[in-house]
């Protein structure tokens, strides 16, 4: 079993124009920084990106948007990115905005081998347009389909050579869900350890879901909203 790659460039080398890719993270927290840099360098275009947010103008997925690499964005919240809003309102970029819980659950369904789920989120709103609605116990629910993605690109805190992953704090967010949902899942980790070093009791993503893993480098981990209180 050989899942370990040297770096991001090699791990993403076969991603083609027009691919559907999932990218983990919430805001700039827990995003696959190394792979995004590699995708920008590779210049692959016409991508459909599934990610909760679209980064900021000069970091995260914002870097790919600036290079016009993204054809379509599927997200729940994009308010942090002015360039995104510009491309969207001018019609250059196709966008599907979906409720955050629905986004998470459509990833989860893919990883659980379930074709669809019913959720109450969006009933009676424009999100429900064109969707099958069913009533259970007096309440309406929307049918939402599992995502299909060519690649899922995730970031974890620690990983081992078997592809097992452990996330840190709220940097977990969408990462374990997307890791389960990709036809090919690529994981970048802050610390790659030999098999046997992670406590199996504490593994969040079992290695079966992870096809490629590499030790990331030079993490910037930019903070979007630095908020502090006075000492004492």
């Amino acid at each position: 079993m050989q899942k370990v790659y040297d770096n991001a460039d090699k791990a993403i080398a076969d991603i083609q124009h027009g691919s559907v890719i999932m990218l983990g993270g919430f805001g700039l927290c827990g995003i696959p920084e190394n792979c995004i840099t590699a995708l920008v360098k590779k210049g692959v275009q016409q991508l459909t990106c599934i990610s909760n947010n679209a980064g900021v103008d000069d970091f995260g997925i914002g870097l790919m948007l600036k290079q016009k690499q993204v054809k379509k964005m599927i997200s729940s919240y994009v308010g942090e990115n002015a360039e995104f809003e510009r491309q969207l309102l001018s019609g250059e970029l196709e966008v599907e905005l979906i409720p955050q819980g629905t986004l998470a659950t459509r990833c989860m369904a893919a990883g659980y081998g379930m074709p669809a789920v019913f959720t109450p989120a969006g009933v009676g709103t424009e999100v429900a347009e064109g969707k099958e609605t069913r009533n259970f116990n007096g309440k309406d629910y929307l049918l939402e389909y599992a995502f299909e993605a060519d690649y899922a690109i995730v970031k974890a805190w620690k990983g081992d050579t078997m592809g097992n992953l452990v996330y840190k704090e709220t940097a977990r967010n969408f990462n374990p869900l997307m890791a389960m949902a990709g036809k090919i899942t690529i994981a970048e980790v802050e610390e790659l350890v030999p098999a046997g070093e992670l406590d199996p009791n504490l593994v969040h993503t079992p290695g079966i879901y992870v096809h490629r893993i590499f030790q990331g480098e030079n993490y910037e981990k930019r903070i979007e909203q630095r908020t502090v209180r006075k000492k004492g």
Binding site: G27, L28, T170, R222, R229, K230
Partner: peptide
Amino acid sequence: PEEGQEDADLINAGKQT
């Protein structure tokens, strides 16, 4: 967090530390 204790991996839904 107190100043200097900010952790980029620990944010709320408003992306605040």
